[in-house]
Design a binder for these strands. Structure first.
Length: 546
RNA sequence: GGCCUUGUGGUCAAGCGGUUAAGACGGCGCCCUCUCACGGCGCAAUCCCGGGUUCGAUUCCCGGCAAGGUCACCA
């Protein structure tokens, strides 16, 4: 068979030679040991935690080593393409503070552009043509029905499914048959002529998983689809070679197709890059655990964290604790260090899939929020409210001074005695709501109505805005004593039967009356922030509504 | 089913032949206290199973078992 002629028929025209491409995309001029990594999402419009997980790894490995990380868009499947998806990826990663050096919509070093695979058609075809000319690839005219029938037969006979060996019908088509099919205008794909033998095992060192054993590939995989676009496997080999990736970081689901990639790189005459296959985030689902799924788990979407108002750094910190087992300890020791200083290592990555733990994220989030200064917290909440808040919530920020006072005095923001009442911006808005709106739904008073009104009346009668905290609380105690409640907690504890309740119950009446909630920060401070008029109005209102 | 990977408390995990088997989250209890939150103290809870190797296995070997991944003209 004349493979050269066949190649010309299949992919007519002049293509640059491998040497041309080697010259066009030269090795990167980087210091020794510098790693080149990449994030290569497909533009489906859905950016998830898994992408962030990979992206942080890519970014850390590249930048820790003085190398670069780039963004490549794997848009070879036009069925899945969504407009604006690339911007969404970039926006989301930027929000979580992952910076790329070059890539799609980012620019940077143009030498290795374009970063959209659909714009790289020529180079893929040039190499496919070369493979055909060498007899390492061939046209396959099997239809999807043919393939389905084949799979069915193999399944029935309990054989390995796929296009390989004796089942690779088109592999041994005669020259005559091929041209007959071509003349008839039959659509075709190009397949790799695999030389592998599954009896052979390959020892392979994975940067994350360590030493693994894989089975040699014998599948004649499709490398060029009938629309002339390469499959992932082929594009991966070409792009990661010519974009000079040194370490390919990807999900462990790719480990299964590593043998294909090993054979492809060899067939192409490219040195194999290093690989790091990371585990995927799991979720408990009844008895078993499974991969986080975008249909079932809203928390997989990065958008979820923005909407809920998680502080972006918190998400990043949590990802880092999952990514490197020694990160948490390091962070405890260096709470004020730049996250970039953490000595991130691929080999410290977990080999098994971690269950995504929202409780843990929430804890991290509270702590991160508690680190924010007054201005930072104000800006964070304001930005969130402007994007996701209700119209009422947006108005909270109209009186910036009041908001800052609330944050500082009641939440301890900016001070050293921090409260950790909320994990997200949306919770924060809910939490401080009673400062800006009259409480609507009241919690139940534990105290009976008559005592409650007596307490309210007594308080209203002697409340003075000018009182300091001590004087204020002394009055509360007085009121307690006068109404049959223990003024001192220890008295009440020593002899609970002697009283209607304690000063705690008296405080609760006042607290619910002014805030609508049984649990709040210091009541005196709240009243100071609300102002005398508003405080009185609320207490009055609570009395009348009983 | 074939192939690959992984198995330490409920979760994330440290550990690398001898440890009272770290730590964090969560849970529970106590203290602090006008409530809550914070903070402090404490408690419960773990080496998948079976064989070896060894004076000694969570650690090494073999075999099970379980879980996950993958078997497309999707990435």
């Amino acid at each position: 068979m004349n493979y050269k002629l066949l190649a010309e028929r299949l992919l007519p025209g002049e293509y640059p030679t491998p040497e041309d491409y080697e010259a066009k995309y030269p090795p990167r001029d980087l210091p020794k040991g510098a790693e080149v990594t990449r994030l290569a999402p497909s533009p489906t419009g859905f950016i998830h935690l898994g992408n962030l997980f990979s992206a942080i790894t890519d970014e850390r490995i590249a930048h820790r080593s003085g190398g670069i990380v780039y963004l490549r868009i794997e848009d070879t499947d036009l069925k899945r393409k969504v407009d604006g998806a690339v911007e969404a990826v970039i926006g989301a990663l930027k929000y979580f503070d992952v910076k790329f050096d070059e890539g799609a919509e980012i620019g940077g070093n143009e030498t290795y552009a374009p970063w959209y695979q659909r714009q790289r058609a020529e180079i893929y075809r040039a190499f496919v043509k070369k493979l055909i000319a060498e007899g390492r690839a061939y046209p396959c005219f099997c239809t999807e029905d043919d393939l389905a029938a084949l799979r069915e037969e193999q399944t029935k006979n309990k054989e390995i499914t796929g296009y390989y060996g004796k089942y690779a019908k088109c592999r041994n088509l005669s020259e005559e048959e091929i041209y007959k099919n071509l003349d008839a205008g039959k659509p075709f794909v190009i397949r790799l002529r695999s030389l592998g033998n599954p009896e052979n095992k390959i020892k392979f060192h994975d940067e994350i998983k360590g030493d693994v054993t894989v089975t040699e590939n014998d599948q004649d995989v499709v490398i060029l689809k009938s629309d002339g676009i390469p499959t992932y496997h082929f594009a991966h080999a070409i792009d990661d070679h010519f974009m000079r990736t040194t370490i390919v970081i990807r999900g462990e689901d790719w480990l299964a197709s590593l043998p294909i990639h090993i054979e492809l790189f060899a067939a192409l005459g490219f040195p194999l890059p290093r690989y790091g296959h990371h585990c995927s985030l799991m979720k408990q689902d009844g008895e078993t655990r499974r991969k986080l799924s975008k249909r079932k788990d809203p928390e997989l979407s990065l958008e979820f964290y923005r909407k809920e108002g998680y502080f972006p750094r918190a998400v990043k910190v949590y990802m880092l604790t999952l990514l490197n087992s020694n990160f948490e300890e390091w962070y405890l020791k260096h709470p004020d260090a730049d996250l970039a200083e953490f000595p991130f290592k691929a080999e410290k990555m977990s080999k098994s899939g971690a269950l995504f733990d929202l409780d843990k994220l929430n804890d991290v989030s509270k702590n991160e929020l508690a680190r924010l200064g007054e201005e930072e917290m104000f800006a964070f909440l304001k930005d969130w409210a402007e994007e996701f808040g209700t119209d009422t919530q947006k108005k909270y920020f109209a009186d910036a001074e009041k908001m800052k006072r609330t944050l500082a005095l009641c939440m301890g923001v900016g001070g050293k005695k921090r409260r950790k009442d909320f994990t997200t911006a949306s919770q924060a808005m809910e939490f401080i709501r009673y400062f800006f709106e009259r409480p609507a739904a009241r919690e139940q008073y534990r105290t009976d109505a008559a005592s409650k009104n007596a307490i309210l009346r007594a308080f209203l009668a002697r409340y003075r805005y000018e009182d300091d905290a001590q004087a204020w609380f002394a009055k509360v105690k007085e009121i307690a004593a006068e109404n049959g409640f223990a003024a001192e907690m220890r008295d009440y504890k020593a002899n609970p039967e002697a009283y209607k309740g304690s000063v705690a119950d008296v405080a609760e009446v006042l607290r619910i009356a002014t805030t609508g909630q049984a649990n709040t920060p210091d009541l005196y401070t709240i009243m100071q922030i609300l102002g005398e008029e508003e405080t009185r109005a609320r207490l009055q209102c609570a009395m009348e509504n009983s």
